[in-house]
């Protein structure tokens, strides 16, 4: 398999603080990679660099043979990287269907066709019953699905998922996990930041551990959880890891 995403030597500094420090990794086509680390480890910053929301100080991001370093976010989205936000960003006054039609319409010129695509994505994430509801009226669980639907409507080859499972009850999580595995089954790669350890461990083919902005460890879920360095970084959270 070839690398779909290659992050090389990326550093991002905020007024002296190295939020992301010389991080390199790759994601292969169809791979699910979990990105974990304590709060403030730089996970979301790394997402923002890949997604184009923040420029990196040094390093490069190559996606599908295109050097996308420094591209604006909308261009990266159209190129095939969908993302969800931890703090969800719905278009509040628009209906669920319109929310999803927007990304679909960036790929096609016909609004009718965009709408058809949006409807099938909405069905797929299980929001069919809320299709005409205003996004601002949705409960959290449905908003998470809407975030995912909006990213999926771009026909992405890579999804950056920032805490799509947190804040959901176990019962709400289960169908979403199945859906994510389904999406991967179509050859879409997933890079996910997640605090729900059990879910990360179950989903991921490979785990990256970020600590103080640096890549501390990488490997299969079982390799990573038995790594003493990782246990050290998560000191006091061993139970969390063991629980997986």
């Amino acid at each position: 398999m070839s690398d779909l995403l290659a992050v090389t030597g990326v550093t991002k500094t905020f007024s002296g603080l190295r939020a992301v420090d010389d991080v390199s990794f790759t994601v292969e086509a169809g791979e699910i990679v979990g990105l974990i680390g304590p709060n403030g480890a730089g996970k979301t910053t790394l997402f923002n660099v890949i997604g184009g929301r923040l420029p990196c100080d040094t390093g490069s991001v190559v996606f599908d043979d295109d050097d996308i370093t420094g591209w604006p976010p909308h261009r990266i989205a159209r190129r095939g990287i969908g993302r969800t936000f931890q703090l969800m960003r719905p278009f509040g006054s628009m209906t669920v269907l319109d929310n999803v039609t927007v990304p679909a319409a960036t790929g096609v010129t016909s609004i009718v066709e965009a709408r058809e695509q949006a409807r099938s994505v909405v069905d797929r994430v299980g929001l069919s019953d809320q299709v005409d509801d205003l996004a601002e009226a949705l409960p959290t669980a449905a908003r998470k699905r809407l975030e995912l639907a909006r990213a999926l409507a771009l026909h992405p080859r890579l999804l950056l998922l920032d805490e799509v499972l947190s804040g959901l009850t176990p019962a709400e999580r289960e169908p979403l996990l199945t859906l994510l595995l389904d999406i991967r089954g179509e050859g879409v790669s997933l890079l996910l930041v997640e605090h729900v350890m059990a879910a990360v461990m179950r989903l991921s083919d490979r785990i990256l551990v970020l600590h103080h902005g640096q890549l501390l460890a990488s490997g299969t879920p079982s390799e990573v959880t038995s790594d003493p360095q990782v246990i050290e970084a998560y000191l006091g959270e061993e139970d969390l890891l063991a629980g997986s």
């Binding site: 604006p72 159209r78 278009f91 628009m94 909006r150």
Partner: peptide, 25 residues
């Protein structure tokens, strides 16, 4: 009722969300 109009309203509602949806704010 056009595609452009949807983009304009989406940017108003959340510019970052719109950018992630491929819309140039």
């Amino acid at each position: 009722t056009s595609r452009r109009g949807m983009f304009i309203v989406a940017v108003r509602e959340d510019e970052e969300g719109a950018a992630a949806a491929g819309v140039d704010g």
